[in-house]
């Protein structure tokens, strides 16, 4: 299990960037459909519980908009 935190205010969007969607082995990222203050449409996770905690999206996000914390055993609170 893993806890994924998104920072939509820092995201530059699925349409313009979309790197998280490319590198996610589970194909969990999609567009949120809602514009942020900067005018980008950030990504969101479709099925957070499917995240394996590989952190590829976190390491590949150019805008520090994703944090993935691997959690051992118990589910994220």
């Amino acid at each position: 299990m893993a806890k994924v935190t998104l920072f939509p205010q820092a995201c530059k969007g699925m349409e313009d960037c979309g790197i998280c969607a490319l590198v996610c082995p589970q194909h969990l990222f999609t567009s949120s459909g809602e514009m942020n203050e900067a005018g980008y449409v950030p990504t969101r996770l479709t099925e957070p519980e499917e995240c394996t905690g590989c952190q590829s999206c976190m390491l590949s996000c150019p805008d520090m908009a994703i944090v993935v914390v691997k959690e051992k055993g118990e589910e994220a609170s």
Partner: peptide, 30 residues
């Protein structure tokens, strides 16, 4: 934004990266 674990290494008043969407500079910065 301050919740991001790398934000303790960045200047607090710099909220936004200046790069174009999808630019690799942010990946290298991280």
């Amino acid at each position: 934004l301050a919740e991001h674990p790398l934000r303790k290494y960045t200047r607090p008043h710099v909220k936004k990266t200046t790069t174009c969407p999808g630019c690799g500079n942010g990946i290298v910065a991280q």
